[in-house]
Simulated assay, not measured.
Amino acid sequence: MLKTVQISDVMRKSGFFFIGKAETTTNEAEIKGEGVIPTQWGSLYESHLLEQIPNKKNSAIIALYTDYESGELGEYTFALGSEVTAVDDVPDNLKSYQIVEGNYIVFTTRRGPVQTVVMEAWQYIWEWSKTNERAFRTDFELYDERCTDPENSEVDIYISVK
């Protein structure tokens, strides 16, 4: 069987600031094709969203999952944007978040087509979640220099744990 992810030990991650475009969704809506995530990704590029974000810390894209209503079954906020050094100048169409310091497990995808490897990793994470305790505070995907080729990308997915 193809190994789809590598898993880190629990790590302590410093807090950070984030600015991006946010919408509410559910896993059920996303699975049925009625969610916001594909539209958000399309909008990221079409509207040149990253160019609108002030005070970017680096060029990485962050896909943020936060404001969980009730674990993986309820509503949550999905936001696409960047880590920033300050949130004192947020454009009207975007939202800022302060992600607090916390414990995370990092799931690193295999190299491959970005949509495929990220979905494989989330399927693995949902199975992993059945026997491990997630915190459902803030989770995020990190799209850095390893993702410049969408057909040969590697993504880190940070899952908050207690």
Rank of each mutant, 00 (worst) to 15 (best):
D88W: 01
V84E: 05
N27H: 04
V90S: 02
P91Y: 06
K56V: 13
D89R: 09
Q52A: 14
M1S: 08
V5D: 05
V155Y: 13
Y104P: 07
E154D: 08
I105V: 15
Y124C: 05
K56T: 11
I31Y: 05
E72W: 10
E69I: 09
R146C: 04
S47F: 06
A135P: 00
T66G: 04
E127D: 13
G42M: 06
W126V: 03
A79W: 09
K13G: 07
Y143M: 02
E83H: 02
V117K: 05
S82I: 02
Q40F: 10
E28N: 04
N93C: 10
F18E: 00
F140H: 11
S14Q: 15
K57M: 11
I61F: 10
T116C: 02
H48M: 14
N27I: 10
W128E: 08
G71P: 04
S59C: 15
E28D: 11
G33Q: 09
W41Q: 02
V100W: 12
A79N: 12
Q115V: 13
L73I: 14
Y97G: 02
S153C: 07
I62S: 00
E34G: 04
F16A: 00
Y65N: 01
V106N: 06
M11V: 15
E145F: 03
G33H: 00
N58M: 14
E120H: 09
A63S: 13
I62R: 07
G35H: 01
R111G: 07
G15M: 10
P150G: 01
K162T: 11
Q52W: 03
N93D: 14
V106G: 06
T77K: 12
N132T: 04
Q6P: 05
I159P: 08
T108H: 01
G42V: 10
A22M: 10
A79L: 12
L73S: 15
C147M: 03
D139K: 15
R134G: 13
G42S: 12
S14G: 09
T26A: 00
D9A: 03
D88S: 02
M1I: 14
D88T: 05
K162M: 08
I105H: 05
V155K: 09
F16W: 07
V10D: 12
T4F: 10
E127V: 06
G74V: 08
G15H: 01
D89K: 07
P113M: 11
S153Y: 03
K13H: 12
M119C: 11
E72N: 15
A121L: 09
T26R: 03
I159A: 00
A29L: 15
L142N: 05
N152Q: 12
F107R: 00
S129H: 07
L44V: 02
N132Y: 13
I53P: 05
Q115W: 11
P38Q: 10
Y76K: 05
D88E: 09
K162L: 13
C147H: 00
I37H: 07
E83L: 01
Y158L: 08
Q52F: 01
M1F: 09
